[in-house]
Lab assay of single mutants.
Amino acid sequence: MAEQVALSRTQVCGILREELFQGDAFHQSDTHIFIIMGASGDLAKKKIYPTIWWLFRDGLLPENTFIVGYARSRLTVADIRKQSEPFFKATPEEKLKLEDFFARNSYVAGQYDDAASYQRLNSHMNALHLGSQANRLFYLALPPTVYEAVTKNIHESCMSQIGWNRIIVEKPFGRDLQSSDRLSNHISSLFREDQIYRIDHYLGKEMVQNLMVLRFANRIFGPIWNRDNIACVILTFKEPFGTEGRGGYFDEFGIIRDVMQNHLLQMLCLVAMEKPASTNSDDVRDEKVKVLKCISEVQANNVVLGQYVGNPDGEGEATKGYLDDPTVPRGSTTATFAAVVLYVENERWDGVPFILRCGKALNERKAEVRLQFHDVAGDIFHQQCKRNELVIRVQPNEAVYTKMMTKKPGMFFNPEESELDLTYGNRYKNVKLPDAYERLILDVFCGSQMHFVRSDELREAWRIFTPLLHQIELEKPKPIPYIYGSRGPTEADELMKRVGFQYEGTYKWVNP
C-alpha cells in the first residue's frame, strides 16, 4: 500500500466541504435556525453545542446559521458558553472563530407547556436576519415526558411559513410498544414523516454505516452471507464503567431499553437485511423493517440478565456495585447486563442465532459485530482449526478484520490463527472521521433520513421486546451478580454456547 501524504486539518475539512456542497440537498446560502429545546441540560452542553461548534469551526454548516437555545432556566448566552465550552476542545488559535460562533447564538427562556412562551420564541426567531423565511431545525434534547406539549406548541407557534421545518427526537422513544405508539401517533398528527428525525446516534458511527458497503459492494461476501456458512452472529456493546452516581436515570430504563432495543437491534438489521433497491432512505429502511418483521418476540429462556457488584480487589469506582450508587433505588432489580438470542425467521437466516450482548462495568470498552462461520467440513488438521470470524469493530479503534487459519512457519503443516486486517487509523491517516452527532446533524440539514429511525421500524423493535420488558417488570427477577471489570455473568457464556457459538479464547485482536 502506497504511503499517504499527511494533510493538514484545513485540507481534510476542505475535502469534506467539497463532498457536502456538491450535493443538491445542502442549501449552503439559505438562512437556517437550529433550535435546541432543553438548552440547559446535560445532553445540550456535552453533545449538541459542542457538535454545532465543530461543524461551524470546520465550515460545514450553511453560511447563515443561527443557534437558539430554549429552556425553562433563566440563562444568558454567557451562561450557555460557560457550561458548554469546556466540552468544545477549542484551541487558543480558534479564539476569534469561537467569538464568531457565540455571536450567532441567542437564548430564550420559557415554559414547555405555555403557548405564550412559544409565541415569544417565534418572535425572537423572526427578528433574526431573514428569520421569518429561514429553515428551522428543532432538536428535542428533553425528557420524553414533555415531548407531547413541546411538539404541539412548536407546531402551533414556531413553524417557518416559507422555509422547511424538521424536528429531531432523542431516544428513548417511549418505554414499550404502547407508549411508543402513543408518542408516534401524537407526533405524526403534527408533522409529516419526512419532517421527523428520530435519532439513534449509533447509526451515525462510521463502521455501522460501513456495514452496507461491506455487504453490498464486495462480491466475495454475497455468496457466504447466509445460514449455510454463518453459524452465529454476535452483536456486542461493552462499557468498562458503571453508573457513577447517575444511576437514578438509568434505573428508569435499564440496559435493554438503553442499548439493546435500539443500538444493537439497528446493527442487527444492517447485518441481516436484503440488498435495498438503492441507497435512498426509504429503500434502506424498507429492508430493515422486513428483517424486524421476521423476528419473533424474545423468549425468556433465551435471556440472561445481570447486575454488577463491587470488586473487592478493585480501586475507586470498581469497588462499588450498582446498588451502592446513592441515586439507585434500594434493592433495585434493574439489569445492567443483558444477553438475548433472537432468530430472523426467513430463508437466508433460518436457524442462525443472533446474540445481542450489552452491559456496564465490564472488562473493556468495545462495540462490534462478529460473524462466526461454520467449521470446515472434512477436517484434515486433527481438530487444530478454529472457526473463521469476520469482525466489524465499531469502537474504539474502528477496524474490519477476518480471523482465519494460516500455516505456522516451519517444517510442518501446523495451522495457527491469524488475521486479515483493515484498521482505519492506519489505512486512512488523512481522513477526519466525523463524530456520530456531527454526521447525523449534517444529515438533518441535508434532509437525508437514511440513518434515522422510521415509525414502522420503531414499532417493530418495541413489538419484539415489550413482552419481555413487561414480564421483567411484573416478576422482578433478581439479576445474576457479576463482578465489576469482569466479562459479565458466566451464564451468558453458557447461553451463547448452547445456541452454537464457540468461544476459543486463544486469539485476541490487537490494534496495530
Score class of each variant (00 low, 15 high):
Leu140Gly: 01
Lys97Met: 14
Tyr118Pro: 04
Gln28Leu: 09
Met207Phe: 01
Arg182Ser: 08
Trp225Gly: 02
Pro62Trp: 08
Val146Phe: 05
Asp228Thr: 10
Ile52Pro: 04
Asp42Arg: 00
Glu19Ala: 15
Arg246Gln: 03
Gln83Val: 13
Gln209Thr: 10
Asn122Lys: 12
Asn126Cys: 13
Val150Leu: 09
Glu193Phe: 03
Thr236Ala: 06
Asn122Thr: 14
His129Thr: 15
Ser106Tyr: 15
Ala6Gln: 14
Leu190Phe: 09
Phe26Trp: 12
Gly59Val: 01
Ile33Tyr: 13
Lys152Leu: 15
Gly248Tyr: 04
Asn185Ser: 14
His155Val: 07
Phe21Gly: 08
Ile80Asp: 00
Arg227Met: 09
Thr243Val: 12
Glu193Asn: 01
Ala39Gln: 00
Ala217Trp: 03
Gly222His: 11
Asp181Gly: 10
Arg81Met: 10
Leu75Asn: 09
Ala116Glu: 14
Ile199Val: 07
Arg182Trp: 10
Leu75Asp: 06
Lys238Asp: 04
Phe250Gln: 01
Val12Phe: 15
Val150Thr: 11
Leu55Arg: 04
Leu211Asp: 03
Gly245Ser: 10
Ala44Pro: 01
Gly69Cys: 05
Lys205Phe: 02
Glu93His: 12
Arg74Ser: 14
Tyr118Gly: 05
Glu94Gly: 04
Gln161Lys: 15
Arg136Asn: 09
Leu137Gln: 07
Arg104Trp: 06
Arg198Glu: 04
Asn126Val: 11
Asp79Gly: 09
Val150Ala: 09
Val12His: 15
His129Gly: 11
Arg166Phe: 01
Pro240Ser: 11
Thr91Cys: 12
Leu183Asn: 01
Met159Arg: 13
Asn64Thr: 09
Ile80Gln: 08
Leu16Arg: 10
Arg57Leu: 07
Arg246Glu: 02
Ile230Pro: 03
Ile199Tyr: 05
Ile256Glu: 03
Ala6Lys: 13
Met207His: 04
Met125Arg: 04
His186Ser: 10
Pro240Lys: 06
Gly245Met: 11
Glu239Ser: 06
Gln161Trp: 13
Leu183Val: 05
Arg57Ile: 05
Phe237Pro: 03
Gln22Phe: 14
Arg175Met: 12
Ile48Asp: 04
Gln119Gly: 08
Arg120Glu: 10
Phe138Gly: 02
Gly204Tyr: 04
Lys205Cys: 02
Lys97Tyr: 07
Met37Cys: 14
Ala44Cys: 07
Asn218Glu: 03
Arg192Val: 13
Thr151Ile: 11
Arg215Phe: 00
Ile33Gln: 07
Leu137Met: 13
Gln28His: 10
Arg136Ala: 08
Ala217Cys: 10
Ala90Asp: 06
Pro144Gln: 04
Asn226Phe: 06
Gly174Asn: 00
Ile255Pro: 05
Thr76Lys: 13
Gly110Asp: 02
Phe138Pro: 01
Leu235Arg: 02
Phe250Ala: 05
Asn105Asp: 00
Asp176Ala: 00
Thr65Ser: 10
Asp100Ser: 15
Phe191Arg: 00
Arg182Thr: 14
Arg17Val: 14
Gln111Pro: 10
Trp53Asn: 02
Ala127Gly: 13
Tyr202Ala: 02
Arg9Glu: 07
Asn64Arg: 13
Thr51Met: 11
Gly222Tyr: 10
Phe221Tyr: 15
Leu61Gln: 03
Leu203Arg: 00
Glu18Pro: 07
Lys95Arg: 09
Leu121His: 03
Pro240Asp: 14
Gly163Ser: 08
Gly254Met: 00
Ala127Ile: 12
Leu177Gln: 10
Arg9Gln: 09
Phe56Trp: 14
Lys82Arg: 14
Tyr49Lys: 00
Ala134Gly: 12
Val233Ala: 06
Phe88Lys: 00
Ile48Phe: 03
Val77Phe: 13
Val169Gly: 04
Thr236Val: 06
Met37Leu: 10
Phe87Arg: 06
Thr236Tyr: 06
Asn105Thr: 12
Ser8Pro: 08
Glu239Tyr: 00
Gly242Met: 03
Gly131Arg: 11
Gln83Glu: 10
Phe241Arg: 00
Asn135His: 12
Gly38Arg: 04
Ala71Gln: 03
Gln209Leu: 04
Ile196Lys: 02
Gln22Glu: 15
Cys158Tyr: 03
Asn153Arg: 13
Gly174Asp: 00
Asp100Ala: 14
Leu140His: 06
Asn229Cys: 09
Leu96Gly: 12
Glu19Gln: 12
Ile196Asp: 00
Lys89Pro: 05
Lys46Asp: 02
Pro223Val: 05
Gln22Lys: 12
Lys45Gln: 11
Leu235Glu: 02
Val146Ser: 05
Ile230Leu: 11
Met37Trp: 05
Pro62His: 08
Thr243Gly: 09
Glu19Val: 08
Lys97Gln: 15
Ser179Thr: 14
Ser117Asn: 15
Glu239Asp: 06
Gly254Trp: 00
Leu211His: 04
Val150Phe: 00
Ser184Trp: 06
Phe88Asp: 05
Asp79Val: 08
Leu61Phe: 09
Arg166Ile: 02
Gln133Ile: 14
Arg215Gln: 01
Gln11Ile: 13
Thr76Glu: 09
Tyr112Met: 02
Ile220Val: 14
Ile234Cys: 12
Gln28Glu: 07
Leu98Arg: 05
Arg246Tyr: 02
Ala109Phe: 11
Leu183Met: 07
Ile168Ala: 14
Met159His: 13
Leu75Pro: 05
Thr51Ser: 08
Phe87Pro: 06
Phe101Lys: 00
Ile220Ser: 05
Gly110Asn: 08
Ala71Val: 01
Tyr249Ile: 04
Glu18Cys: 07
Pro86Ser: 09
Glu156Gly: 15
Leu61Met: 08
Thr10Phe: 13
Ile154Gln: 01
Trp54Val: 09
Cys232Gln: 14
